[in-house]
């Protein structure tokens, strides 16, 4: 009865989903045909699809190397975010003098755009000798304030008595975090994974600044470089875009259920 009453809403949602997916479908279709995207009338289905554009991308530029760089940098960012944000968030759930000010400071730092801090960030990275390295590429993204607050909200939702019980059981702070809080906050972990992965994966500005060696470039930089190599770019460009998008989509799809819960957690808590 109820399901039957829902169909107009579902139909409307399906239409909206389809509209949202049209650009992505167009990218995939163009990558398989190389046809002019401005062709009129537009063709809905690909004509004589082929994978040559993908082969071109793979061989014309060091795509596997860019992919490796992007994967390593993103993994470092994801790992850094989980470890550092969880530690910071745990500290923020504990009482210490000046905690309010630390929270306010963190919140106000969120207002500063990354571009404004890019020069000091560059200088620090250079001083650490990390320019042109994977760690240097990941450094500014190892912890993000938004994700600290995602963890903080999740930790605060864990009943206080569980932490007390863990202390009575003999666990120190690090073990309470690792063995009690993190296993209970999987949605917050998933949110951290997805957000930090996507931000790192799509980052263009920072890799552009800290990489000198073309072999240290990441996929977004590779895309820019690729555009300067090829003449009839349409098909290959779109193939490249698909190849860049797929890993991010895969991570999102794997963690999306937990991700939704992580983003809405706290929203329903009084």
């Amino acid at each position: 009865m109820r399901a039957r009453g829902m169909w107009p809403r579902h139909a409307a949602l399906l239409v909206v989903c389809a509209i949202m997916l049209v650009p992505f479908y167009w990218v995939v279709k163009t990558s398989l045909t190389g046809e002019n995207i401005y062709a009129y009338p537009p063709r809905l289905l690909p004509q004589a699809p082929h994978l040559f554009n993908y082969v071109d991308v793979w061989y014309l530029i060091p795509f596997p190397r860019y992919l490796l760089n992007s994967v390593i940098v993103s993994l470092l960012a994801v790992g850094g975010n989980i470890v550092l944000n969880a530690l910071a968030a745990y500290a923020l759930t504990r009482a210490f003098p000046g905690r309010r000010w630390v929270v306010l400071l963190l919140l106000s730092c969120m207002l500063i755009p990354f571009q404004a801090t890019i020069i000091p960030a560059y200088l620090i990275t250079a001083r650490l000798g990390l320019l042109n390295s994977w760690l240097g590429l990941a450094l500014p993204m190892l912890s993000t304030i938004v994700c600290i607050f995602v963890f903080k909200a999740a930790f605060e939702a864990v009943p206080r008595s569980l932490i007390d019980a863990a202390r009575m059981d003999g666990l120190g702070d690090l073990r309470i975090l690792a063995r009690v809080l993190l296993p209970l906050c999987k949605p917050a972990i998933a949110t951290n994974v997805i957000l930090s992965f996507i931000w790192s994966w799509n980052n263009f500005m920072w890799p552009l600044i800290v990489t000198r060696d073309p072999l240290m470039q990441t996929l977004p930089l590779g895309l820019a470089r690729f555009l300067s190599y090829v003449e009839d770019t349409t098909g290959a460009l779109y193939a490249f875009v698909v190849m860049v998008l797929v890993p991010g989509l895969a991570v999102f799809l794997m963690a999306q259920k937990e991700f939704m819960r992580g983003l809405t957690a706290g929203a329903t808590k009084g």
């Binding site: 008595s161 569980l162 007390d164 019980a165 202390r167 009575m168 059981d169 009690v180 296993p183």
Partner: peptide
């Protein structure tokens, strides 16, 4: 002494069992 070093066990009002 830390709670763990007092050799005390506690039963909590809301049970405080680890759900995972």
């Amino acid at each position: 002494r830390e709670p763990k070093d007092r050799d005390i066990a506690m039963v909590f009002q809301d049970y405080a069992l680890y759900p995972h």
